[in-house]
Amino acid sequence: MSARQAVAKTYKLYLGGAFVRSESGRTDPIGGVNVPRGSRKDVRDAVKAARAAAPGWAKKTAYNRGQVLYRFAEALESRSDRSDEIDEAVDLLVHYAGWTDKLAAVMGGVNPVAAPFLSFSSPEPTGVVAVLAPDSPDVLGLVREIAPALAAGNTVVAVVSRTKPLRPLDLGEVAGVSDIPGGVLNLLSGRLDELLTPLCGHRDVNAIIDATYDDDVAKTVDELAAETVKRVSRPSPHTDSLTRLEPLVELKTAWHPVGS
C-alpha cells in the first residue's frame, strides 16, 4: 500500500474577498512554500477593494459588526492547528467583538454646551486602515492590529509577517468563512521594502498602524503619512484596547438647535 501523497496548498493573497495570486506573478520561497510576493499593483487593488467595502462595513449596526467579529473568533477557534498563540488571538477577537457597541458610550457623549443646542460627539470609522503587522508572533501580532481596526468600523489592508506569512495568509480563509464582507479585510504577503511606499503613500489610506517596531520604518511611514495627513499609531504589544481604538476613529461633533 503506497503512502498517500499530501495535497500541497498554493498560498494566495486575500484581496476583495477573493484568493488571488500576486498580480506580478512573483513568489518568494519561504519554508518550502512559494509565497506570493505582493506588488505595488496588489496594494492598489487591495486599497481599492477596502475603499469600496468601507461604506457598507461602516454602515452595519454595531451589534452586527460585533457578531461578525465573534463569528471570526468562532471560525478561528475551530481550526485544527490550535496553540496558545491562536487561543490568545481568538480571545482578542472575542474582546473586540464586544467593543463595537461600546465605543460611542466610552468615547463620545452629549456635550453640555452653554447655549440652546443639543451637541453630541460620537466616534466614526476613520476609513481605510493600513496595517504593518509584526514579523512575530505571526498570527497574534496580526490579529492584535486588525481586530481594533475592524471593530471600529474600518476596512483593512494588512501586510502580514514577512518571515512567517503562511498562517497569516490562512487567516484570510478563516475570514472568508466568517461573514466578513469581501474587501473589509485584505491580506498581502511580500517584502516590506516593496510594499511600504505604495501602501503608506496611497492617498486613499486614512490611517496606518505600524507594528513593525522598526525605527527606520517608523520614519518612512511618518513621512509618507504626512502627504495626506494620515493618522499613524504605533501600539506596543501591551497597549490596551481603548488606546488602540482611539486613533482609528474620528470624533464627529453634531449640533442641533433645541426649540420649536
Binding site: P257, V258, S260
Partner: peptide, 8 residues
C-alpha cells in the same frame, strides 16, 4: 421657522 436662529 427655526426658533433658536430667530432669537439669535
Amino acid at each position: 421657522v427655526n426658533r433658536v436662529g430667530v432669537e439669535e
